[in-house]
Amino acid sequence: MKLAFFQGCNIPIRIEQYAVSATAVLRTFGIELETIDDFTCCGYPVRNVDETAYLAPSVRNIALAEKRGIDIMTICNCCFGSLQKARHAMAGDPHLGETVNELLAKDSLTYHGTGSVKHLLTVLHDEVGTPAIAAKLSHRYTELKVAVLHGCHLLRPREVTRFDDSFVPRITGELVQLTGAANLDWPGALECCGAALAGINEDLSRSLLLEKVQGARVAGAEFIVPVCAYCYLQLDSVQATEKGDPLPVLLYPQLLGLCLGLSPEVLGIGLNSSIADHHISLLESRLGPPTTEKKSRKKARATAAA
């Protein structure tokens, strides 16, 4: 299987390890990612300014992938949300289609609406499938409490993103449990990291971020796992400017990658600025055999919940 890897603007320069670890994990399952140089920004940053200018780039990016006959995969929620919004809008608004296709004609592109947009987590959960992942595991965490921060534009609005149940998402939970780690139920899991307000209302942006960090800490999280690139940057870079030790941030392909026998170096875990060497040692020390007795798993969950 081959997918067009849509990395967006932040990942290649600020979170290269997200792309690298996702690529390494998917390669384990025979999924090949193709980078398309002509991809541009998804449009998200301009949404406050002009809705059509926001939609046009995503339509163009989908058209680029359609031309190559492959589907798009993203790892950034805001890119995912924008691409899905573009598909949704193009399906419902013929006037928009006219405007945008006229613009695309300059690059000899046409949007047909045949290509689909996937998220890394959907690719793992639906295309690869949890049983296939489980079969490839070389390790599972014997004990590890993680708080997943879903990010908003992955889940909502549900009729646009079509990712999962936006109130009770299952995909993330199942993927985390696969690794043996406990997926904490915590109040901030479905809420905002504050990134959308950064540079517009700094204080509010920061307080939303700190509320998430605090929430995850109170729930007993050892690591926080953001799905979105923006959430990651808020947690990993902005949190670093706060006093005290940061709550370490791990990306899902890094969490899963260790269980697939990939090394922390390959997964770029050390590149996360909130991660110190002792965090990596801790993660490695918690790696156990790939299959666990039902009993002990229950026990692990009970400890996690405590």
């Binding site: 406050n48 809705e51 908003c152 909502r156 959308a196 307000l197």
Partner: peptide, 27 residues
């Protein structure tokens, strides 16, 4: 100050697209 988290829109019992309306107003 809207964080564009879409919680309001998702929770609205009458499916009012609040966040989308906010974007429209911002534009």
């Amino acid at each position: 100050s809207c964080s564009t988290c879409y919680l309001c829109q998702e929770h609205c019992p009458n499916n009012v697209a609040l966040t989308d309306i906010f974007y429209h107003l911002k534009n």
